[in-house]
Computed example of a mutant assay.
Amino acid sequence: MMRTSRMLVNLYARGLTAATLSCMVLLGTSMQASADETDAKRLLKAMSDYLVAQQAISFDYDAMLEVVTTDEQVLALASSGAVTLNRPDKIIATRSSGFADVEMVFDGKTLTLLSKNLNLYAQEEVPGTVENLVDELRKRDRPLPGADLLLTDPYETLMHDVVDVKDLGSGVIGGVECDYLAFRTEEVDWQIWIAQGEQPYPCRYVVTSKLIDGAPQYSIQIKDWKAGDEVAATDFTFMPPADAKKVDLKNLEGADELPKNFQTGEAQ
């Protein structure tokens, strides 16, 4: 059996040498002393304002969801996909992994989930905005990739219950130089890398659980970012593939976050 979380990282500290750990202690002291909380908040707010100002957004992504077995082995489930968003109420998101190939279409009224590999689809009326859709999908344990970054006020959502903020300088993600920020709450630690320049979009977002043994993480790395006029015109009308079978959402197979051979248990 396995324990898992949707907002989840293994820091891999157990295998580090004593010398490496001593360096980490010294580095940690230096980073804490030099962290600029005000600047970190400013950079995060600038990213949030930029995202909210975009009427249309599209990007590709690679994601990793870690699960922890009862014998404390950390396993990582990898997936890739793409997202196209038109504010306020249209989105298409895909997710492909070794056990699922899923497309989600939302046109402001109807949510459609298509299990491509099984040629099954389900539909449900969910009128409202993308933000309302995010809430509904979370209730069903079917989260959108990077959902926190797609809301109408990412800054408010991300900063909720934050008790510690660090500006850690810069890093490079996929060849893009980014500002590197780290935040802590009582339940999770999270990090974000934000592209420098006129388009401060999120390049990488990592959330680490503090409530589950093994500290599993969820991470998403964003690439091929486009916004505004760069986004290709998209039809958000769902057309079922030939011979596709419609089923109830609760009976839709091949669209879960975990493969069938994974049995989830209680977090400890």
Rank of each mutant, 00 (worst) to 15 (best):
M1T: 13
M2L: 12
S5D: 11
R6L: 14
L8A: 15
V9I: 07
N10C: 09
Y12D: 12
A13F: 06
L21I: 13
S22W: 05
C23L: 14
C23Y: 10
L26T: 12
S30K: 09
S30C: 05
M31K: 12
D36K: 11
E37A: 15
T38M: 06
D39F: 08
L43R: 14
A46L: 03
S48Y: 09
I57S: 05
D60M: 06
D62G: 12
L85A: 07
L85P: 06
N86Q: 14
N86R: 09
I91Y: 05
R95A: 00
S96K: 15
S97P: 00
F99K: 04
L113I: 14
L118C: 03
V126W: 00
E131T: 13
K139P: 03
R140C: 03
D141P: 03
P143A: 04
P145W: 01
A147T: 04
L150T: 08
T152V: 12
T152A: 14
D153W: 11
D153S: 13
V163F: 05
D167W: 11
S170K: 15
G175R: 07
E177D: 15
D179A: 15
L181D: 07
A182M: 03
T185E: 00
V188L: 00
D189Y: 01
I192K: 06
I194N: 07
I194G: 06
Q196V: 08
E198T: 13
C203S: 15
V206S: 00
V207P: 06
K223G: 07
K223F: 05
D224V: 00
A227K: 00
E230G: 00
E230Y: 02
V231L: 01
M239H: 10
K246Q: 15
L249N: 02
L258S: 01
N261C: 02
F262G: 05
Q263R: 10
Q263N: 07
G265V: 01
G265H: 02
E266T: 04
A267K: 10
Q268V: 04
